[in-house]
């Protein structure tokens, strides 16, 4: 210890300290970011998948995304977006995109499962990115109550507390989540499609994502305990209903009650 304190005024001490500091912060950063870093594809794609996917990509996607998915003026580069992104975008029909607009619309799916898998394999082969989640995370057996809390804190401001969807600025919107498969929900969180932010594994852990999916599937499957949910849109739908249906029926009755006099 004494030797060290004696050398503290050595001309190289400052440089050594700087190096040490850089090493520590760099090392910590590396550790921290690996949590966020998309893992390399765990799904086993065969060589043939990748090859077929490349052909499909060239025929259907390259017009906008460029040959080799390097991106053009009309579409972003897909290097490193991962298999999850392809599975979500193509699997929900958002890609190939119907038209340019504030965001890609959901529409009937254009590729079958096999083709979607091949496209995912091709894009995954271009660079590491989020992979298609394992079945264990999609079993809908997480903690629904905790999922609900996570959902309210992270998702409800756009998707509505009952996941009925909501408006964003300039024609963009957060779609309703009923009827969306657990796999697509997971992929959306992992990749942040359209205007959605990315919720990486440091932000919401895979278990948290599993809880959210459990919660969403629970409110979807349990139905509405209080009767028809009127779109689960809150007080606006309720007000519209009471004015049109409630008062409407009552006015019909008042007309009936006063129809046989004077």
């Amino acid at each position: 210890m004494k030797a060290l304190s004696q050398k503290r005024r050595h001309p190289l001490a400052a440089i050594a300290l700087l190096l040490m500091g850089l090493l520590v912060t760099g090392g910590l950063y590396a550790v921290a970011t690996t949590m966020n870093q998309a893992k390399a594809s765990t799904t086993n794609f065969t060589e043939q998948d990748t090859e077929e996917g490349g052909k499909l990509f060239a025929a259907n996607c390259a017009t906008c995304h460029g040959m080799g998915a390097g991106g053009t003026q009309d579409g972003p580069s897909l290097v490193g977006v991962g298999a999850a992104s392809v599975d979500f975008q193509v699997g929900t029909g958002r890609m190939p995109m119907q038209m340019n607009g504030p965001q890609a619309q959901e529409k009937p799916v254009q590729f079958n499962e096999e083709q979607t898998r091949q496209l995912a394999a091709y894009v995954a082969s271009l660079g590491p990115g989020p992979s298609i989640p394992e079945a264990g995370l999609l079993d809908e057996k997480g903690n629904a109550a905790e999922g609900g809390e996570l959902f309210r804190v992270n998702c409800a401001m756009c998707h509505n507390a009952a996941a009925a969807g909501g408006a964003l600025t300039r024609g963009k919107y957060a779609p309703p989540l009923a009827g969306v498969s657990g796999q697509h929900i997971y992929e959306a969180m992992a990749t942040g499609p359209q205007n959605m932010p990315v919720f990486n594994d440091a932000n919401i852990s895979p278990e948290g994502k599993r809880d959210i999916i459990t919660y969403l599937k629970q409110i979807e499957n349990n139905g509405s305990p209080g009767g028809a949910d009127l779109g689960a849109l809150g007080p606006v739908a309720e007000g519209l209903f009471v004015w049109i249906a409630g008062l409407g029926v009552i006015i019909a009755f008042t007309i009936w009650l006063t129809s046989r006099t004077s």
Binding site: G148, E149, R152, V153, A156, M157, C158, H159, N160, A161, A162, A164, G165, G166, A167, A174, I219, S224, P225, G226, G227, A228, D229, L230, A232, L233, G234, P235, V236, E238, F241
Partner: peptide, 23 residues
């Protein structure tokens, strides 16, 4: 036959989250 104010959907009050469609 018609749900009104499904409080179980909204969760407990917490000043941080604000749900879309809050009216």
């Amino acid at each position: 036959f018609f749900t009104i104010n499904p409080i179980w959907n909204y969760g407990p009050y917490d000043p941080s989250p604000v749900s879309a469609g809050t009216q």
